[in-house]
């Protein structure tokens, strides 16, 4: 009985199982192949998926990517703030010319503050949770929190901070973020602002590899007109991998080089800052004298 079944219905069942295993293996292999190709080609993003590591693109040192390095900012400043900005620029230029650069906030390891913190020379990581979106700029800016679907409290009631108080909401596939209460000791590449500064951001995914953030800065005390700056960011992993599917758009790998672990670097600026202000407020050369 059993022998008959083994060569009859049991045999068919075994062949069916083998076919099933083979098909599963093939499907698994195909899926694995697709996923590997997907990894190589970059990640597929949903329209609201802003999570992950980003690097500003084009890579610039100043907040406004349309400026040449060192070119004065285009903000339309009220007279008092214009005077402060010009005074700063003159002092900075003098320091550079004399080889005694100003020990600005950055040289002292102080945060840039919003919005300049969104313009780092290292990756920026977004972590999205249900109630809060976190932004971690690599460098010496603290984490930024964007509270979702909450009203923005009156700025007079909020304790000033480097990254300010941010609230966000989705409007279609655009994340609208409003920030106030940024400490007035911060500047935007040297441009001073007041306690009434309001930064509106319109953040959206343009494609799998590209994020756009349009900043509109209003400040009735410091600015004569809104200051609008558009920044783009590229997926840091895509940059590091390079994208052979988009000739001409292949990006130079980040400092760590191809194949390096794609993580944000730990930066503790004050750990060994030998460039704190030296004589006359210039950057110390950090050497034994």
């Amino acid at each position: 009985m059993r022998a008959m079944n083994a060569s009859g219905s049991f045999g068919r069942a075994r062949r069916s199982r083998v076919r099933s295993i083979l098909l599963t293996a093939l499907a698994g292999g195909a899926l694995f192949g697709v996923s590997v190709m997907g990894m190589a080609a970059g990640r597929h993003r949903g329209p609201r998926d802003i999570s992950g590591l980003w690097m500003q693109y084009p890579f610039v040192f100043q907040f406004d990517p349309t400026l040449k390095f060192g070119e004065p900012q285009k903000a339309a400043l009220q007279p008092e703030y214009e005077t402060r900005y010009r005074t700063y620029l003159a002092a900075a230029a003098k320091g550079e010319a004399e080889g005694k650069p100003l020990a600005n906030a950055s040289a002292q390891c102080l945060p840039s503050g919003l919005p300049t913190s969104m313009s780092g020379f290292a990756p920026l990581e977004f972590v999205v949770t249900k109630k809060t979106i976190y932004a971690f700029p690599e460098g010496w800016d603290p984490p930024r929190r964007i509270f979702l679907n909450r009203p923005l409290p009156a700025w007079e009631d909020v304790e000033p901070s480097y990254e300010g108080y941010s609230v966000g909401r989705w409007e279609g596939d655009t994340l609208l973020v409003d920030t106030e209460s940024v400490k007035v000791r911060t500047t935007i590449d040297g441009v001073p602002h007041s306690d009434a500064m309001h930064v509106q951001e319109r953040i959206r995914v343009l494609d799998d590899d590209t994020l756009e953030d349009v900043f509109t800065i209003t400040d009735p005390k410091a600015l004569k007109a809104p200051w609008v700056i558009t920044k783009h960011y590229k997926d840091y992993e895509t940059q590091a991998i390079g994208d052979a599917n988009r000739p001409g758009q292949e990006l130079e790998p980040h400092f760590a080089g191809k194949g390096a672990e794609l993580v944000s670097e730990e930066v503790v600026c004050v750990e060994n800052n030998r460039n704190m202000p030296g004589a006359n407020g210039s950057v110390s050369d950090g050497v034994a004298h």
Binding site: F63, A92, E96, G99, S106, V283
Partner: peptide, 11 residues
């Protein structure tokens, strides 16, 4: 110019 990197290298 004043680099917004950590510090200027004008020294």
């Amino acid at each position: 110019a004043v680099a917004e990197a950590h510090h200027s290298f004008a020294m």
